[in-house]
Amino acid sequence: MTDALKPLDIDTVQAFVLVADFASFTRAAEVLDTSQAAISLKLKRLEERLGYRLLERTPRHVRLSPQGEQFIVAARALLNAHERALGDMATHAPRRLVIGISDHVAGPDLPTWLSRLAAYDPLVILEVRIASSRDLVAAFDRNELDAVIVRNEGDRQDGEVLAVERLGWFAAPTWQHSSGTPLRVATMAAPCGVRHLAVRALEAARIDWTEVFVGGGVMAVGAAVSAGLGVAALAHRVAPAGAVDVSEQYGLPALPVSEVVLHSRISDARSRETVRALSATFRGVLQR
């Protein structure tokens, strides 16, 4: 059979799409539970098979070539057709995964994560619950959730650390704090792990503070920050657009780093693959 008539290898096409989606050979290798070298070899063979370069690679960046931009459309259609064909078999019926994601973790990147998951596994029915880390871990321990991605707020060591994020004190660019007056703070309602860290840091530094806004989620707290109501302890990634870290400007106490952790009890092979894709997606964004 000539090269022109040889069928494309599904696993290799999937590797290409994952590298393109994550802009990373490392993340693609994590999803497929293989090595970076194996992914590179697959991509090299695919490019040789097609006769053109799919990816442009530098030490820091991976992006689609013009030919890759065209090929990825057909590649996704091929993978979706393959999944639909498998879906006709009883052993590959649609699966439901119930996943909890901490409000302090989800942030503005949630649509990106969901789109990548849907592209990777079109047969999965994903049920996502957004809540506090403490509530999600409790629900996970009650077997109500298949997996959770949360901030590590205790001494548990059984999760998979996806990233370590910095926290800062964020405020609107025009916000000002008057010396000698209590620090105006916007927080989430208790119990919230980030709120607890912030309060403990302020009290340890003997900084007088007052709560001026209590939000039911990070978006609400971010809105209060943008409105100039006060300062809030947030991860840099989820701080509202335009907000600035005023820690140094006002001598606010350093906040401890925060671990983002995955807890999962998923056992079937295909669902584990989906969770690996989820983990790699989070790592790719959280570690930017």
Rank of each mutant, 00 (worst) to 15 (best):
S24I: 03
E48R: 13
L50F: 05
G51A: 09
Y52D: 03
L54A: 09
T58W: 01
Q67D: 08
L78N: 02
G87C: 10
D88I: 00
M89E: 05
R95T: 03
L97Q: 03
L97W: 01
I99L: 09
G100T: 05
D103F: 02
D103T: 09
P111F: 04
W113V: 09
A118W: 07
P122F: 04
S133A: 14
R134Y: 06
R142C: 11
E160D: 01
R166S: 14
W169N: 08
A172I: 07
T174A: 15
S178T: 15
A190L: 11
P191H: 10
V199A: 14
L202E: 01
A204F: 08
R206P: 01
V212Y: 09
V214T: 14
G215V: 07
G216S: 15
V221R: 13
V225F: 05
A239Q: 03
V244R: 11
E248V: 08
P253S: 10
P256H: 09
V257C: 09
E259H: 13
E259N: 12
L262T: 04
I266N: 02
R270T: 09
R272D: 00
E273H: 10
R276M: 02
L278Q: 01
A280M: 08
F282H: 14
G284V: 07
G284S: 15
Q287G: 00
R288I: 05
R288T: 07
